[in-house]
Amino acid sequence: MLRSHLLICGFLTWGLLGCASSKTSNTARTATEQLLISNAVDQALDKIDFRAFRGHTVFLDERYVECVDKQYVISSVRHRILHQGAILVPKAEEAEVLVELRTGVVGTDVADSFLGVPEITLPGMLTLPEVRVLTRQVQTGTAKLGIVAIDAKTKEVLGEGGMTLAQSDTNNWFVAGIGPFHSGSIHGEVENMTQGPAANKWNYIPSTVVFAKPKQETVTPLTPPAIQYTSTTQTALEETPGTETNR
């Protein structure tokens, strides 16, 4: 009997060591989910070299892009093409190169695991709570993009095209209910962009609102137009001293 009480007290002591919960979001989607997807998309596009299109007109065909954060995927591809010196055009008829983009996978996954004791029901309707000594939550973001380039005139494939796949991740650790302790690719991205030179601010918006008066146009006084003569003889007579003009 004494051993049973000690066992119960031991479990209760473990349960009181720590307890942590993470509020996910007050918006429709968490920032972590969006970072996982955008980070995976960026990594996938890092593997595509658009330098062959430098100086050429390019039309991006986005009909086969169907995924979450579709606009980010399309805009990121457009940015990469422009960054390599190509010229984007709004119509296929105006392009030398047709770039066809498709999405295979753009999404996230979550996996939970823990080291501890599961919930136990004892005789007499007594239930011992679950005790998690070590908990790990892993979230991953995966992006798989396909791309092919076509000569607009000959309709031949330029190169082989191909698929690019990348994965982002975040690991959250809890020790005896204390945490989370973070690691993963998205935390490295946040750290790199919020510390050091990347954290410098180049554009400040004032915290107070002050307006300036609109500039007033300077009104130039009108001057009477000079007399214009249609006859060169008349002009010569006016310029000759002592000459009177018959009126």
Score class of each variant (00 low, 15 high):
Ser4Phe: 14
Leu6Asn: 14
Leu7Trp: 12
Cys9Met: 12
Leu12Ser: 07
Trp14Gly: 13
Trp14Val: 12
Leu16Glu: 13
Cys19Phe: 14
Ser21Ile: 06
Lys23Glu: 14
Ser25Met: 10
Ala28Thr: 01
Thr30Gly: 13
Thr30Ala: 15
Ala31Asn: 13
Ala31Gly: 04
Ala31Thr: 08
Thr32Trp: 02
Ser38Ile: 01
Ala40His: 02
Asp42Tyr: 12
Asp42Pro: 13
Ala44Asp: 07
Asp46Ala: 13
Phe53Trp: 09
Arg54Asp: 11
Val65Trp: 05
Glu66Arg: 03
Glu66Asn: 12
Lys70Leu: 10
Val73Met: 05
Ser75Ile: 08
Val77Glu: 08
Gln84Asp: 08
Val89Tyr: 06
Val89Lys: 05
Glu96Gln: 13
Leu98Phe: 07
Val99Pro: 00
Leu101Lys: 05
Thr103Arg: 00
Thr103Ala: 08
Val106Trp: 03
Val106Met: 09
Thr108Asp: 02
Thr108Leu: 07
Val110Tyr: 11
Val110Trp: 09
Ala111Phe: 07
Asp112Gly: 11
Ser113Gln: 12
Ser113Met: 09
Phe114Trp: 14
Glu119Ser: 09
Thr121Asn: 11
Leu126Asn: 11
Leu126Asp: 07
Thr127Trp: 02
Leu128His: 03
Leu128Tyr: 04
Pro129Gly: 04
Glu130Leu: 10
Val131Tyr: 08
Val131Asp: 03
Arg132Gly: 12
Leu134Met: 01
Thr135Asn: 11
Thr135Tyr: 05
Thr140Lys: 14
Gly146Pro: 02
Gly146Arg: 00
Val148Cys: 03
Val148Ala: 00
Lys153Ala: 13
Thr154Asn: 06
Met163Ser: 08
Leu165Lys: 10
Leu165Val: 15
Gly177Lys: 02
Ile178Lys: 05
His182Pro: 01
Gly184Ile: 06
Ile186Tyr: 03
Gly188Cys: 04
Glu189Val: 09
Glu191Tyr: 13
Asn192Thr: 15
Met193Lys: 12
Gly196Lys: 05
Lys201Phe: 05
Trp202Ile: 07
Asn203Cys: 11
Ile205Gln: 15
Ser207Trp: 14
Lys213Asp: 06
Lys213Ala: 06
Thr218Cys: 08
Thr218Gln: 14
Thr220Gly: 01
Pro221Ala: 06
Pro221Asp: 07
Thr223Met: 08
Ala226Leu: 04
Ile227Asp: 09
Tyr229Asp: 10
Tyr229Met: 03
Gln234Asn: 05
Thr235Ala: 13
Ala236Thr: 15
Glu238Pro: 01
Pro241Glu: 15
Gly242Lys: 08
Thr245Ile: 12
Arg247Glu: 14
